[in-house]
């Protein structure tokens, strides 16, 4: 086989492989690139912007690499006349590759600083529709969603109205997990004794997969949940329906639920005990026998009208 046929063969094989891959990926649902929420959309655009900016460096690197390797290979006798063994610096070109990347990074830094603030998970989403609160508790190994104002709770399912900002207040009653709905945007860690939060808003109705992104033990892989964005009407009907569930989320029922279990199906509770979320956090904040609220520890959890603030809700643990 001549060298030419060999190279042609390799090129064809690579092209066929790339073609098949593209065809496959075009038919595949890629959640992060197909966002269904305001935050996820902005984050995807930021990703594309960063990718584009990087191309300004990456393309020249690849072009230079392949050109130099091809042209200055030892077997290419044509370039031997241009051999310059002592060429070892050039102030101008070196300044160029300190400077150009610096400028690009400076641009990216401005974008980073701004987007860190505008897309801070603690920043409320501006909308005419009032924000709704869902309290999220990661347990071994399932997610409990408590609706403090609707007085219902659900395991491994969070349903909420579309185009409504949702304030997820997140904590853990076991180890650290990470609360993540890729198609809606930003994940946030859930930690015992801590309250973190993330504001998300779905822009189209649908069922989206949610995950824990941080290893939490034996049943970790089963910590998938569904985030369901519906019309307001459907949502209210769903609330009514869950309300009729005879099972109340009393402290006893909660403690029962809190026992380790894996691959839990969706289940519902009505009338969660008052301030359950705060009680869960306080479990880790005080001595076990004194399960009471303390001043200043998680005051932000109570404030319905949350002002934009990052740190204060993390408690003083």
């Amino acid at each position: 086989m001549s060298k030419k046929t060999k190279i042609t063969g390799i090129v064809v094989a690579v092209l066929v492989f790339l073609g098949l891959s593209t065809w496959y990926l075009a038919r595949t649902n890629i959640p992060i690139l197909e966002p269904k929420g305001t935050i996820a959309l902005k984050e995807r655009n930021l990703l594309f912007f960063g990718l584009g900016l990087s191309a300004i460096i990456v393309i020249p690197v690849f072009v230079l690499l392949f050109t130099f390797v091809w042209r200055y290979r030892e077997t290419n006798s044509k370039s031997h006349a241009r051999y310059r063994p002592d060429l070892d610096h050039s102030v101008l070109t070196e300044a160029l590759w300190w400077l150009i990347p610096s400028i690009l990074i400076a641009i990216l830094s401005v974008v980073t600083w701004r987007s860190s603030h505008t897309l801070d998970p603690y920043r409320p989403i501006a909308s005419k529709t009032p924000t709704m609160t869902i309290q999220v508790i990661s347990m071994d190994w399932k997610w409990l969603f408590v609706y403090p104002n609707q007085h219902i709770a659900a395991v491994n399912l969070a349903e909420f109205p579309v185009n409504t900002p949702i304030r997820f207040e997140v904590t853990s009653d076991s180890v650290m997990n990470s609360f993540w709905i890729p198609q809606l945007g930003s994940q946030i860690y859930s930690m015992p004794g801590m309250a973190t939060k993330v504001y998300l808003m779905a822009t189209s109705a649908g069922s989206y997969k949610g995950y824990s992104a941080n290893i939490s033990g034996k049943g970790f892989a089963g910590m998938m949940f569904t985030a369901k964005a519906t019309s307001r009407k459907t949502f209210l009907e769903w609330v009514q329906q869950v309300h009729r569930t005879p099972r109340h989320l009393t402290l006893a029922a909660y403690n029962q639920l809190n026992k380790p279990s894996e691959y839990n199906p969706v289940s519902y509770y009505s009338d969660p005990v008052n301030n359950l979320y705060v009680k869960i956090i306080d479990k880790y904040m005080s001595r076990p026998q004194a399960n009471v609220l303390k001043n200043g520890h998680s005051n932000d959890v109570h404030s319905k009208n949350s002002n934009y603030s990052s740190m204060n809700s993390m408690g003083t643990l």
Binding site: E43, G50, V111, S186, Q187, A213
Partner: peptide, 12 residues
Amino acid sequence: AIPPVDFQLHNS
């Protein structure tokens, strides 16, 4: 390194 992008890619 862009924090909001990381919110979507962290631990993935």
